[in-house]
Amino acid sequence: MPGLQHSVTISAPPELVWAIVIDVDDWPRRIPTVDSLERLDPGPLAVGSRVRLRQPRLPEALWTVTELDEGRSFTWVSTSPGVEITAAHLVESAPGGSRLTLDLSLTGRIAPVGWLMTKRLSQRYVATEAASIKAAAEGG
């Protein structure tokens, strides 16, 4: 199963980091790899919530939250013909603040080919997302 994991230590309490991570409505302003995000369901992000996400150089994607551990993590999934992408966001306490871990994995019959085509871009986008959340949490 192709994928990647990226962790960053943040000099801010987990509660603050979580508040930034879960506030997906603000991602287009905070994260340069997110062009736009449209919530398709009212209320706070919850299991079953759907989001339409547009990112540079990638097709528009519909993401559905499949897991949510309030204050700690959420996972969402996007499906297209032949591939399912899972993205997990985990906030943990760490010495001096928090650790944010972003995990991206692909499954499905065309996942290996899709990964070859998007690996570098995905690595850059995940690292940028982590750095952007870190900067926001640390007051940048």
Rank of each mutant, 00 (worst) to 15 (best):
V77Q: 09
H6N: 04
G82K: 08
S73G: 09
G97L: 06
G71A: 04
T33L: 02
R109E: 12
E38M: 10
A131C: 03
F74E: 01
L45I: 15
L90E: 14
T86P: 02
L53C: 13
V21Q: 07
S78E: 06
P112K: 13
A94S: 13
R39N: 04
S98N: 05
L90F: 12
S105A: 15
M1R: 14
E67L: 08
W115Q: 07
T33F: 02
P44H: 11
P95W: 10
R99S: 01
E60D: 12
S80V: 11
P14L: 07
G140I: 04
A12Y: 00
G71R: 02
W76V: 01
T33Y: 00
P13C: 09
T79S: 15
D26C: 07
V17M: 12
D69V: 07
Q55H: 08
I10E: 02
W115D: 05
L40H: 09
R52E: 12
V24W: 10
V83F: 09
W27Q: 06
S122E: 12
S105T: 15
T101I: 00
V34K: 03
A87C: 02
I10L: 04
L106F: 14
I133Q: 07
D41H: 09
V8R: 06
T101G: 04
T86S: 10
Q123F: 07
P112F: 02
A12I: 01
S122L: 11
P13T: 06
H89P: 02
I31G: 08
L90K: 04
W18C: 06
A111P: 11
V77F: 03
S105H: 05
V113K: 12
R50I: 05
R72D: 00
L16P: 05
R54L: 14
S73H: 04
H89S: 00
R109C: 04
Q5L: 05
E15I: 10
